[in-house]
């Protein structure tokens, strides 16, 4: 009796579920091993000494932090730290700018009726499909010559000098490439919020602006957070544009610095894995602790079943 009860518990799922307990945990263990093994290997390599690594030892026999000390204080550390600072600046500015522009536009698309609303929205969404490489060449020339944006019907022009090798070239490019995605996710999220709340605010005498800031935005914090996380992680990760626009450590970002590692440090895998681990730590920590927002954002942003 007892055996068959255990058997039933292990191999027969509840009616509402698919996978029996036994297979569930077997699958989860495999998933855990395959997910973590390479990442753990990255870390253990970074705390190993070179002779251990070159003799094929998988676990450090003489754990050491010397690779990290070397990375942050040794030769070439100034470059790595400069790249870290550039990455933080680029990711932060890109996220803030994309969110300001994106929230305003997404609100209009989701909540206000105006002519050509749908065609414009689809036009913007279509931009998401274009790979960055297809407009990289004209963008490069534009950054070299400086960007100018004129507000129509006025003489107000915003003109910059050459932006090559400055973090601003990356901020401008990343913000532009993020906007379609940001608007798509946010518009989807704003649409899920009940119209009644807004109309109640109008009845209370709120204007459009106040209704937006007092009612819709506070309710959209999860969606806005998810979108901001995506923008941040993308800006931190981007490599193609950064590779084209940056020339010195005045603007090189972490991915560029890490790519140069591979060329420069040849066999020093301890130092390289340490550099990779430190560079990946911010996005990994953000993603792990805020994964709930990421999943919810994906659910709400139009990708629903």
């Amino acid at each position: 009796m007892a055996v068959s009860a255990v058997r039933k518990r292990l191999f027969e799922p509840r009616p509402s579920e698919l996978v029996p307990k036994f297979w569930l945990w077997l699958g989860l263990m495999l998933l855990l091993i395959f997910t973590l093994a390479p990442f753990v290997y990255l870390f253990t390599s970074s705390i190993s000494i070179t002779p251990d690594l070159l003799s094929g030892k998988l676990l450090p026999h003489h754990p050491t932090l010397s690779n990290y000390v070397n990375l942050l204080t040794g030769q070439g550390s100034a470059n790595y730290i400069a790249a870290m600072r550039n990455s933080v600046e680029v990711a932060a500015c890109t996220t803030v700018l994309s969110m300001i522009f994106g929230i305003l536009a997404a609100y209009a698309f989701a909540r206000v009726r105006f002519p050509f609303r749908m065609s414009m929205l689809f036009g913007i969404l279509a931009m998401q499909i274009l790979p960055s490489i297809s407009i990289l060449v004209p963008l490069y020339i534009m950054m070299r010559n400086g960007v100018s944006i004129t507000i129509p019907f006025t003489h107000i022009t915003w003109q910059t000098g050459s932006l090559l090798d400055s973090v601003w070239s990356l901020v401008i490019a990343y913000t532009t490439f993020s906007l379609p995605f940001v608007i798509w996710l946010l518009a989807g999220y704003f649409q899920t919020i009940s119209k009644d709340l807004e109309e109640a605010a109008f009845v209370d005498g709120c204007g459009r602006w106040r209704a937006m800031f007092r009612v819709i935005l506070p309710l959209s914090v999860p969606g806005i957070a998810a979108t901001a996380i995506f923008t941040l992680l993308n800006a931190w990760d981007e490599y193609v544009i950064a590779n084209a626009f940056t020339q010195t450590y005045a603007s090189k970002t972490l991915p560029i610095a890490i790519a140069e590692f591979v060329g420069k440090h040849g066999m020093d895998w301890g130092l390289m894995t340490a550099g990779g681990f430190v560079g990946s730590l911010p996005p990994v920590i953000i993603a792990m602790f805020l994964y709930r927002y990421i999943v919810n954002g994906l659910t709400a942003g139009g990708i629903k079943g």
């Binding site: 997910t35 290997y41 990760d237 390289m272 990779g276 996005p283 792990m288």
Partner: peptide, 25 residues
């Protein structure tokens, strides 16, 4: 488990390249 499986995705693409280059040495 849900938080753990995000790790590979959050890793920098370049670091992923570096990591697997090291694995395939």
């Amino acid at each position: 488990f849900r938080a753990i499986i995000i790790i590979p995705w959050a890793l920098l693409t370049l670091v992923n390249g570096l990591l697997w280059d090291w694995i395939y040495q």
